[in-house]
Nucleic acid binder design. Structure first.
Length: 539
RNA sequence: GCCCCGCUAGCUCAGUGGAUAGAGCAUCUGUCUUCUAAACAGAGGGUCUGAGGUUCGAAUCCUCAGCGGGGCACCA
């Protein structure tokens, strides 16, 4: 990967200037102005103090001595900056080296990690806010898998908590033709679930409430999980495991965690309940076992930590949560630490909410717009593209009217169209020319719009690395857009001047341009795959 | 009151402490006898919420303030 190579060359050149101690961050990054080249570093400015020399002079000496392997890029000093520009020959050669899966690097070295995402209470259909979590989590998994991590994708199914009990009670009430209890679930689907339960659980109505409620609840939860599974599959989201809370209780891990924390002084008894907190500080204490003997969700989460970090041995766990759970982050971190688990192994990604312009969502009232409805309206590809386009820190204001009327102006088509065009032109070449030379002479790729495509390809590994290390998939659609722009220009050059078409009479030239098409198409496909968006061959 | 996120072009948003702050949409002007016009070329549009501070250098880091959203349960 070139960025890393240049960074190393830069450091070596700085050593050559006689700097032995720690070298400050030389700020090697993408040059923002085309005149400055492709990568730029403020090395001269950074070292001015250490070397007690003018920045321009330092940059000059670095530019003269720096050795970029393979002659990949040329260095020039401008002011205190050292700028690097790709050499055409290197860009041409790169085109050959782009194969399917280009950009993958073994960053993870086989690290076993779990990504737990989308785990909403199975008490109703997924709405558009949940859609953000599942697509974000799924793309994080795809990135990690692409970069040498061993990923397990998990959905934690709450089944025994207050919310799911309320849900079960609501279905039970409907089963008997009654209104759901106070604070229960009132959606139409609850009535449907009651009808299904009546059919699938013969005699359920005759049982006492005490006997019937758990059966009805588990039945309804299973039905909801089934529905959630079907919904996420529509947006290409896959899970390895659906981990049920009741399995956790059966394992005894929550009790084991509590016992351990009691020994460390993190579990305290007060007002008839068990609390978790710092041994000598009551301020942030949270209830683990209620005064009535019932455990809270926090008790199960303690066990869940042990399940993953100890019993199943994940080196790292990534959790994707909606931002309304942010207050829970410090508690989970301190719980992990108290259990003897290095808290940095627990990575929590928060994403902001998804709002509708028309008004607030309310799950209980059943007025929400479901993820299924959204997919029906705009299609899976657009759903994923739009969710992933935003940084997790930004609230999405979903304009349903606009989303529903989207056509040409939809950015997902821009990227897909580039892929389809490339596929089409390759097919056209086969039709028109039949057999082409086996190998391409990439040195024939010398037009600026051709080299620009290659230049974009050169940046792809950087994007993959940054997105992986920062767990920020939104970098991918922005890259896809840049690459698609280069592709469209490359293609379009042939619209105004026939000799610049990809398929021309000159077989050697055609072959070279097809090689560029192939490289760009593979990279577009790879990037779209990471987003879970399809790469059509025809549109 | 405390905690989290945001505030960048008319709108929606990018932007690892670096040079002249970008994109899409919207608006306006051009380009199909064509390998796909779902495209391309171009134009206009900015007090990066405000005030201090750190730094050779701040949209970016720190402090304070404002506005918007979210959270502060023996719910999850």
């Amino acid at each position: 990967m070139l960025r890393e190579t240049i960074q190393a060359a830069l450091v070596e050149a700085v050593r050559g200037l006689g700097v032995d101690g720690e070298i400050p961050d030389l700020e090697l990054g993408r040059a923002k102005v085309p005149d400055h080249g492709d990568y730029a570093s403020s090395a001269g400015l950074k070292l001015a103090r250490v070397l007690r020399q003018p920045p321009g002079q330092i940059a000059q000496r670095i530019a003269e001595s720096v050795h970029v392997p393979d002659g990949a890029a040329a260095a020039t000093a401008v002011g205190g900056y050292v700028n690097f520009r790709f050499r055409d020959e290197w860009l041409q050669g790169l085109v050959h080296r782009v194969i399917p899966g280009y950009g993958a690097r073994d960053i993870g070295r086989g690290e076993r990690l779990q990504v737990e995402f989308g785990s909403v209470n199975p008490t109703g259909p997924l709405h558009i806010g949940h859609g953000r979590g599942v697509t974000l989590g799924d793309s994080i998994c795809r990135l990690l898998e692409f970069t040498g991590h061993k990923v397990q994708r998990e959905y934690y199914v709450n089944s025994d908590n207050t919310q799911t009990r309320r849900f079960g009670a609501s279905v039970y009430a409907r089963l008997h033709g009654q209104e759901p209890p106070e604070g229960g679930y009132t959606g139409e689907y609850v009535i449907e679930l009651a009808d299904m339960a009546r059919h699938d659980l013969p005699g359920i109505e005759k049982l006492s409430e005490e006997e019937a409620e758990p059966k009805v609840r588990m039945y309804a939860i299973d039905k909801m999980v089934e529905q959630i599974r079907a919904t996420v599959a529509r947006v290409n989201v896959r899970y390895d495991d659906w981990y049920y809370e009741n399995k956790l209780w059966d394992s005894g891990l929550p009790q084991k965690a509590i016992d351990r924390l009691r020994a460390t002084g993190n579990i305290k008894e007060r007002e008839g309940a068990l609390w978790f907190g710092e041994p000598d500080d009551e301020d942030d204490d949270r209830v683990v076992i209620r005064a009535n003997g019932q455990p809270t969700y926090f008790a199960s989460d303690l066990g869940y930590l042990l399940s993953r970090f100890e019993q199943r041995g994940f080196q790292r766990v990534v959790e994707v949560w909606a931002a309304d759970h942010h207050g829970y982050v410090p508690r989970m971190k301190s719980a992990a630490a108290a259990l003897g688990i290095d808290a940095t192994r627990l990575v929590i990604i928060l994403h902001q909410m998804v709002n509708l312009k028309e008004g607030k969502m309310s799950k209980r009232a059943g007025r929400f717009v479901t993820l299924d409805e959204l997919i029906d309206r705009v299609g899976s590809d657009a759903v994923r593209y739009f969710y992933l386009l935003r940084s997790p820190d930004t609230t999405i204001e979903f304009d349903l009217e606009l989303a529903a009327t989207q056509g040409n102006e939809n950015p997902v088509y821009y990227a897909q169209y580039a892929h389809a065009r490339l596929s089409n032109v390759e097919a056209t070449a086969r039709e028109r020319h039949g057999a082409l030379p086996e190998t391409a002479d990439v040195s024939l790729l010398e037009q600026p719009w051709e080299l620009e495509v290659a230049r974009q390809l050169a940046f792809w590994p950087d994007v993959v690395e940054d997105a992986t290390l920062l767990l920020e998939p939104h970098r991918i659609p922005y890259y896809v857009h840049d690459l698609a722009t280069a592709v469209h220009r490359f293609y379009h050059a042939g619209n105004s001047q026939a000799e610049h078409r990809i398929v021309v009479d000159d077989l050697e030239l055609t072959r070279a341009r097809l090689e560029l098409c192939r490289a760009a198409r593979h990279t577009l496909k790879t990037a779209l795959d990471l987003m879970g968006v399809s790469a059509p061959e025809r549109m």
